[in-house]
Design a protein around this nucleic acid. Structure first.
Length: 922
RNA sequence: AGGACUAUAGCUCAGUUGGUUAGAGCGCUACCUUGACAUGGUAGAGGUCCCCAGUUCGAAUCUGGGUAGUCCUACCA
């Protein structure tokens, strides 16, 4: 074995082995455990957030697989309609082509080509992370089976009246030429203006002043509204004004939506271009005039002077023209929220179009109930509120997208505008008895990607066919996801699954935090602070990292800034830490918080932890390989106190990990394991094994017992660690297992260690605690007194009780070795104690004679510090016990505890004071 | 505007049903290449648990009110 752990040398080898041998496939078992991967975008790449999420799922999966469940982790990707189409369109653009130049069929072919070419990226990354997905079952939202499911769902919902087509105002992305759902629109505050215009009354007697942030929409105004109780305008309601530029006469109406306090209290109403105005238009039966085209340029409904102008050009022109007419009252700076497409970044227009909708309200009822009655539980629970608040006010879901990449809507139209929904044209004709002569054309649109994602848990298992997998693995056990897609995905999955399967898609939703950079910033390409998990595994030099972060940017002007920041944060690039260290870092950060700051310092610590495990194994193997470790359990074996103690500690660790896993506290699991391996097994047990193994006097049974304990505890620990650190544990386990009497081809299919109360040994625990106390007392004297570590000490014990005496007897060898003692013995009866530095373990006094090695003043200082600490503590306890209210009202156990504390501390204090005095008299 | 969450060591974070001397990792200081490991060992320093008030014998923990930050939802033209 190398002196340091080299992850790169083993990771790929083991992953290939696992995959080739089919270990990731369900292995049987009484109970099923399944997780459906939240499908990443097929043409994308994994970022730190994905890495975090996959690591969590893999830990759950490996844990349950080892625990004997019939375990499936279902892999797959989605087609990410808009994102993917955009990428390919941009590639075409580079060749000076648009998708229209190619035509629909050719263009979709191109996307498939791109998918084939780039689709392996994600799955390659997942493999590098050690994700034990059953690749033999990999699915894609656009593959045949899932498309069939999508079609089936659409048709059935249509037949049940839960999908309908209607003309509504939608969020229109003028760059992508498609409707997007309200979830895909992000509103941010931006600086704009508030333009005040004079609208002349048709009566010719004066004007009203309206304010707007979007002057161009005035071409589509069909009313001006005031508040019904606004006395200033009450007399004008029912009259009309003559709309400037268009010359149309439009009514003045009253509606309590209007806030009389804002602006002038008069609002221009444009029902075809504003969501609130749309509703008001409905209430008042107003005309809807659409003045934009698909590009958000002015259409021919508007006066000729503006037709064809882009919306922002038209804005400038209209303001200028109104000013010229003397109708511009004033312009004020104004902060407003501007809605932008999350993909395109352009300003979204409310736009009147024909779209398909899902009646979400009807589907929401059972979905709310499933969470209310606990069929589905969120972890942490507070996310249920987020879910409820959205579900209880849910809007119908616009599912049609004016894209070419996606599931085409299975609807056909005849020239009379009749709609026929079915599997294909032939079936539609047959079902509706349509003559051959009737021309039908299929709807041009495709479905929202989330529509197919909503079916993910059951479509991946073969639905609508009644497959065995569906029966076995559905509902899935848990969904692991970020809170940012509770609405997009989780809620819709619950609705769809309940409707079609009459069962929940998953029993638990584990909501994890969002990975941010070390400064708490969200990682994003435009900020240039994204990290590729693979770069933390393999390492990356500075220049490559800069190139990677500044390549292919939407806004190249940011490149310089990103380069600077990158050079500042990673002047040396990023070291290679390996997958296990990265994964363990993720777990250590997976608490209940919403934000996860990823600090490079953390991963370094866990890389060191891997190295610690590696070297501990090296030590164990050095002492066990070729030796009798009682692998077959036949030899005579004597277990030392230390052996019994570490076995006992191992049980506590098993229990802690099991508890942590049951509550999704991966941070607690990782903490418990780290603490056990480093602070107990390595720091104490390995050290305690040395005096036995290196002692020529020790019996063969004792040596065998220690070797057996060394190797078996290590073997169990590797299994305990495996779900979190798959590679290093497999690598070491291969050599360790046979020595520990375990056989098997791989650690990943071994049983997960279970807490065994027979292993718990409180007597051994107490003895070792005593031993640690004595050693730590001595080390403290050494450290504080600057006694050279190489210097052997002769130590005396005073005031030893019976248990101290027997413990001393049992542990003398260990004590000598670990505290580097020349000798240690009890002070004989009547023997006068020499002047010495003192440490206390309970009532036992440990004396290090000062003779020539201890500095008087240093010892006095050290004692003073101890005395002060005790005095403070005593004061606190006395205060408590002198308070009658405390003694009367606090539970007896608490009072008793304080009393015994008081006594112990008083004794200790007395001894230290006495000691201090003696030294002062020296 | 409504709601949620967060505030603990220099940094990143744990802290169970109120009772601990408030913990861990990283960083810091001193010493140490002893035969698993310097990606290491030993010892140590470091906290007004954001502020104020309340409940309680007792509050990092519970309640109310502030302050600061983050996020979500809905939005005023």
């Amino acid at each position: 074995m190398d002196k340091t752990f080299q992850p790169a040398a083993i990771e790929t080898r083991w992953y290939q082995e696992w995959e080739n041998r089919g270990y990731f496939q369900p292995q049987g078992g009484d109970q099923a455990y399944s997780i459906m991967i939240p499908p990443p975008n097929v043409t994308g790449s994994l970022h730190m957030g994905h890495g975090f999420q996959e690591a969590i799922m893999d830990a759950l999966i490996r844990y349950h697989r080892m625990s004997g469940f019939n375990t499936l982790w279902q892999p797959g990707t989605d087609h990410a309609g808009i994102a993917t189409q955009m990428v390919v369109e941009r590639q075409l653009e580079a060749e000076g082509l648009s998708r229209h130049d190619l035509g629909r069929e050719k263009f979709v072919e191109k996307i498939w080509e791109w998918k084939e070419q780039s689709g392996g990226n994600i799955t390659r990354q997942l493999r590098r992370l050690g994700a034990s997905l059953d690749w033999s079952r990999e699915r894609f939202t656009m593959d045949e089976g899932l498309s069939k499911a999508v079609q089936e769902v659409f048709i059935r919902l249509y037949e049940e009246g839960l999908i309908y087509r209607g003309q509504r105002l939608v969020n229109w992305d003028p760059a992508l030429h498609t409707a997007v759902s309200d979830l895909e629109v992000l509103s941010e505050e931006e600086q704009g203006h508030l333009w005040h215009f004079k609208y002349p009354l048709s009566s010719g007697e004066g004007h009203l002043i309206v304010a707007t942030t979007r002057p161009e929409t005035m071409l589509g105004d069909t009313a001006v509204a005031v508040h019904p109780e606004d006395e200033r305008y009450a007399h004008l309601v029912g009259q009309s004004i003559t709309l400037p530029l268009s010359g149309r006469e439009i009514p003045i109406i009253a509606d309590d939506y209007v806030d009389p306090e804002f602006g002038t209290g008069c609002v221009k109403i444009t029902p075809a271009h504003d969501f609130n105005d749309y509703e008001m238009g409905q209430r008042h039966g107003l005309e809807m005039i659409n003045i934009l085209d698909d590009n958000a340029a002015i259409n021919e409904q508007a006066p000729a002077a503006y037709v064809g102008l882009d919306r922002f050009e038209a804005r400038t022109r209209i303001v200028a023209d109104l000013e010229q007419l003397g109708l511009l009252d004033k312009i004020e700076p104004h902060t407003l929220k501007v809605p932008r497409g999350d993909r395109s970044g352009v300003v979204i227009e409310p736009y009147l179009t024909q779209q398909w909708y899902v009646d979400a309200k009807s589907l929401a009822g059972p979905a709310i109930e499933a969470v209310e009655n606990g069929d589905i539980q969120f972890v942490p629970k507070q996310w249920e509120n987020t879910y409820f608040s959205w579900m209880r006010d849910i809007q119908d879901w616009c599912i049609s997208r004016q894209l070419w990449w996606g599931h085409r809507i299975p609807a056909w139209y005849d020239d009379a505008g009749n709609i026929y929904v079915g599997k294909d044209e032939a079936q539609v004709r047959a079902q509706n008895k349509l003559p051959e002569s009737l021309t039908l054309r299929q709807d041009e649109d495709v479905l929202d990607t989330w529509f197919s994602s909503a079916l993910w848990t059951f479509s991946t298992l073969g639905w609508p066919d009644n497959t065995e997998e569906l029966a076995t693995f559905h509902p899935s056990s848990v969904l692991v996801t970020g809170f940012d897609i509770i609405f997009f995905w989780v809620a819709r999955m619950i609705m769809m699954t309940l409707h079609f399967r009459k069962e929940v898609p998953f029993h638990t939703v584990y909501v994890h935090g969002l990975v941010r950079d070390a400064e708490g910033q969200k990682m994003s390409k435009s900020k240039g602070n994204v990290l590729d998990p693979i770069d933390l595994i393999d390492g990356i030099d500075l220049e490559s990292l800069v190139d990677k972060r500044t390549a292919g940017m939407m806004q190249p002007q940011l490149a310089a800034k990103i380069e600077k920041a990158t050079r500042k944060h990673y002047p040396e690039g990023i070291n290679a830490y390996g997958t296990d260290a990265l994964r363990f870092t993720y777990y250590s950060l997976a608490s209940t918080g919403r934000d996860i700051r990823f600090d490079i310092g953390r991963i370094e610590g866990f890389r060191n932890f891997c190295n610690k495990i590696w070297n501990a194994a090296r030590y164990v193997l050095m002492n066990c390989e070729g030796q009798d470790c009682d692998a077959n359990g036949a030899g005579e074996v004597e277990l030392s106190l230390a052996d019994r103690w570490i076995i006992s500690e191992l049980q506590q660790t098993k229990a802690a990990v099991a508890k942590a896993m049951a509550s999704y506290r991966f941070d607690h699991a990782s903490q418990a394991l780290y603490e056990f391996v480093w602070n107990q097994y390595c720091d104490w047990y390995l050290e305690l094994s040395k005096p036995v193994l290196w002692d020529d006097e020790a019996s063969e049974a004792a040596k065998r017992g220690t070797r057996r304990t060394l190797i078996r505890v290590l073997e169990s620990t590797l299994r305990l660690l495996h779900p979190f650190m798959p590679y290093i544990t497999e690598e070491i386990w291969q050599t360790v297992a046979p020595l520990a009497g375990q056989s098997g081809a791989t650690i990943m299919l071994q049983p997960y260690p279970l807490y065994d109360d027979k292993g718990v040994d409180s007597a051994a625990n107490a003895d070792i605690e005593w031993l640690k106390g004595v050693i730590e007392g001595l080390r403290n004297i050494r450290g504080e007194m600057n006694i050279a570590p190489g210097k052997s000490l002769s130590v005396l014990l005073r005031n030893a009780g019976e248990s101290d005496k027997s413990r001393l007897e049992k542990n003398a060898a260990s004590l000598k070795k670990l505290a580097k003692l020349e000798s240690i013995r009890l002070l004989a009866d009547g023997e006068e104690a020499p002047i010495a530095a003192t440490a206390l373990v309970g009532e036992l006094e440990i004396l290090v004679p000062m003779a020539d090695l201890i500095d008087k003043n240093a010892e006095l200082q050290r004692l003073a510090k101890e005395v002060e600490k005790l005095e403070k503590e005593l004061q606190r306890i006395e205060g408590k016990l002198n308070n009658p209210a405390f003694v009367d009202k606090a539970p007896e156990a608490v009072v008793a505890k304080e009393r015994s504390k008081l006594q112990a501390q008083q004794q200790a204090l007395a001894k230290l004071r006495e000691q201090k005095q003696r030294i002062e008299l020296m």
